[in-house]
Design a protein around this nucleic acid. Structure first.
Lengths: 205, 205
DNA sequence: TTGAAATAAGTACGAACGTTCGATTATATT
DNA sequence: AATATAATCGAACGTTCGTACTTATTTCAA
């Protein structure tokens, strides 16, 4: 009798699919989502090209899977730990510090940031996904700032959107200095910039 | 008699070479230096692939030529006009404003910034050239800040390197908001961020 | 005007790419 | 153990890529 389709999903395939995505993520951190090559990935995981391909309907779906892995990794490293802290300045500080630490941890580039450059003029599902996550990331920063304002820890006249913009700029600069200029001091500079930004956003009295 | 080599350089070829580089630059602003394809460029300028190729010994040389065109364009728009102004805060402000305006002018992406992502893990002449220009760009910012300090327009205890870092972050954020998020307010945000940065770097009394 | 040099086109190649397809092996349920 | 399904393979397809050669055309100085 034919098994009722997809009541229990595939068993072994999910594991190898994860392995493929993991290898592809490592590859994408070095050469971006556009640099992903099914042949190279296959060679990396010891499979045939078609074997790898079968797990995704297309190269684009593979890119989407890798992007999801990258954003999950980012959220797990940056946002989830910060949720344990009290709303307001503590959590905000934790998010900022976690982002700095996250970039420092990466031995290669940030897939999300590369993708934002690769796809900013290339409409389609990948661009949509990149954009959605970047918007979410930004709004998390803004929300954290608003909490701190509400708690009286930051100036009530603070422009939270502007604050989020400047935070993000510091991250971009830190990533740039670390990855492109190979400057070992990038983390220290980012911390100093955040400290100044927060100090200047503190209530006047 | 053989013409004395390269006393007067090539005549007609230089013009078409310029046309090729110009078309390639437009293409690279949309898809990066890695996205450059000799075939597409040839089609764009109405030539054969081999005709285009003959002007450059290799694809890498073409990329270098396009990168040079991009950095020249940037310098001409950002730094050269600012040299007419007095050293110190006026010139610094002009550079910052010119950078904002430059990004706003581009109907597509910034080749230099894309290249910094594409080549940050890809050693070679292109990466070297990108890195050299980014370092120069950064040092120009730092130097402008130092002039302003020397003129007594900025706080003498200012960390000029840190100042340059934060300036660059604001640019990156502005470029990101404009190109990736398609946020029309990115220029205004950048100006506000610079205003704040300068205001907080002003001498105390 | 002539002839050499500069410039462009034409053709072809080997490699890599994403993708398709039929065949084959592994797995899991009855 | 039997069998339906999932998982993987191997080979091939059509494109596109950069590049190498050869041939034709244009340009410019003598």
């Amino acid at each position: 009798m034919p098994r009722p389709p997809s009541l229990r999903g595939p068993q072994k395939g999910a594991a190898t699919r994860d392995a493929i995505v993991l290898a592809a993520l490592a590859l994408a951190e070095a050469s971006g989502l556009e640099g992903l090559s099914i042949g190279v990935i296959a060679q990396q995981v010891g499979m045939s090209k078609s074997g790898v391909f079968a797990h995704f309907g297309s190269r684009e779906d593979l890119q989407l899977a890798v992007l999801k892995a990258a954003t999950d990794k980012f959220s797990a490293a940056v946002f989830q730990p910060a949720l344990k802290l009290k709303r307001g300045l503590p959590r905000l500080r934790a998010v900022l510090e976690n982002m700095i630490a996250f970039y420092q941890t990466l031995d290669r580039g940030c897939v999300i940031l590369s993708a934002s450059h690769e796809f900013d003029d290339q409409p389609g599902p990948v661009r949509d996904a990149v954009l959605a996550y970047l918007r979410q990331l930004r709004s998390e920063l803004v929300r954290a700032a608003r909490y701190a304002v509400d708690a009286g820890e930051l100036d009530p006249t603070l422009d939270a959107e502007q604050f989020g913009f400047e935070c993000f700029g510091i991250f971009l600069a830190a990533h740039h200095d670390l990855r492109t200029l190979r400057d070992a001091d990038s983390a220290a500079r980012a911390r100093r910039a955040f400290a100044r930004l927060i100090a200047h956003s503190t209530p006047k009295n």
